[in-house]
């Protein structure tokens, strides 16, 4: 009798674990542990720090995407913002051809220019969607095309080298073994978490995603809230660009061009809904961790690029299916 009770309790507990919001984290753990026997070097401290340094910039840009997804929108322009910000920053601070090349102000001015570029593109997206009533998909698709074209044009498709050491250290330097990138990510992503979970604008964001009309009737400033979401996504993409550009030591106009699926995929795997109203920064962290783990383990075990793409595509598709089934 007692044995049966135990089994029931165990089942309940296991079911609880799977149905709670931490299921993707459990999945990450299972994936990681079951990969250990087949993946030499997976648990080495070098590799663990590798996983985290690969994860941080993706987490930042995916967090921005999560905020947009919560409002029921989508931001396809995030990768082009990364390329544009990289180029704008490099054009300001590069020692070879930068406006302020060699000056002590080069790095801070470059950093500010990058963030401003991200915020401007994000604001532009938000304004076009809320004031002109255009669908987010087409607005961000066109801004993606326009700004990636602009980034290539500004540099004539050549990457810009010789960035100030102060700047590149943001991407690869560390303080007491803790990378600067980690400080930046914790600060930014932490702020987004607080915004979403503990602030009034956070509740407005969810309200817009659940039912935009109901939100408007209840007095939510829908236009400003949605514009805020896209502006934040732009700023996040620019911040991720800072980390990527820093560690590559190069301002590349095609930076992040292939990252879009990872960004949206991570948010959806975490549990953000493509239909709006659902999503959390912590979940997105789990999604990013899962995708990074897949990449890392399959890479270390010598799987071909095509296998990795198929596995990632499959996982994202499953997550999207799950999202659709929740809605039914």
């Amino acid at each position: 009798m007692r044995g049966r009770e135990n089994i029931v309790r165990l089942r309940l507990r296991a079911g609880g674990l799977l149905s709670t919001e931490h299921q993707v984290l459990a999945l990450c753990l299972i994936w990681f542990l079951s990969s250990i026997p087949f993946t030499p070097g997976l648990t080495s401290s070098n590799n663990i720090s590798n996983i985290f340094s690969n994860l941080l910039p993706l987490l930042i840009v995916a967090s921005g995407q999560t905020v947009v997804l919560i409002t029921g929108g989508i931001d396809l322009s995030a990768p082009s913002v990364m390329g544009l910000a990289a180029v704008v920053g490099a054009l300001v601070m590069s020692g070879d051809q930068g406006l302020l090349g060699g000056s002590a102000w080069a790095a801070p001015a470059g950093l500010a220019a990058m963030m401003l570029a991200g915020a401007l593109v994000g604001w532009l997206n938000g304004a076009a969607i809320t004031r002109l009533g255009m669908p987010p998909f087409i607005v961000t698709l066109t801004t993606m095309t326009f700004f990636s074209g602009l980034a290539v044009r500004l540099t004539k498709s050549e990457p810009i080298y010789n960035l100030p050491a102060v700047f590149t250290s943001i991407g690869k330097g560390s303080l007491f073994y803790i990378p600067y990138a980690l400080f930046a990510t914790v600060f930014l992503v932490g702020a987004m978490h607080v915004l979403l979970s503990r602030s009034l604008p956070g509740r407005w964001l969810y309200a817009c995603g659940h039912n935009v009309r109901a939100a408007a009737i209840s007095g939510v400033p829908v236009g400003a809230t949605v514009t805020l979401a896209y502006t934040l996504s732009g700023v996040c993409a620019a911040a991720a660009s800072v980390l990527y550009t820093g560690r590559l030591e190069t301002g590349s106009p095609v930076l992040g061009q292939r990252l879009l699926l990872d960004v949206i995929g991570a948010a959806v795997i975490g549990g953000a809904s493509l239909f709006g109203g659902r999503g959390k920064i912590v979940w997105t962290f789990y999604g990013v961790l899962f995708l990074t783990l897949i990449d890392n383990t399959l890479n270390l075990t010598g799987h071909s690029h095509f296998t990795i793409m198929m596995v990632k595509g499959g996982v994202i598709l499953l997550a999207a299916l799950l999202d659709a089934s929740r809605r039914r």
Binding site: Y244, G256, Q257, R258, N296, N299
Partner: peptide, 12 residues
């Protein structure tokens, strides 16, 4: 075609 991905892979 992504330099950052190449950096991650070489680091791996």
């Amino acid at each position: 075609g992504d330099a950052n991905r190449q950096l991650e892979q070489v680091n791996n």
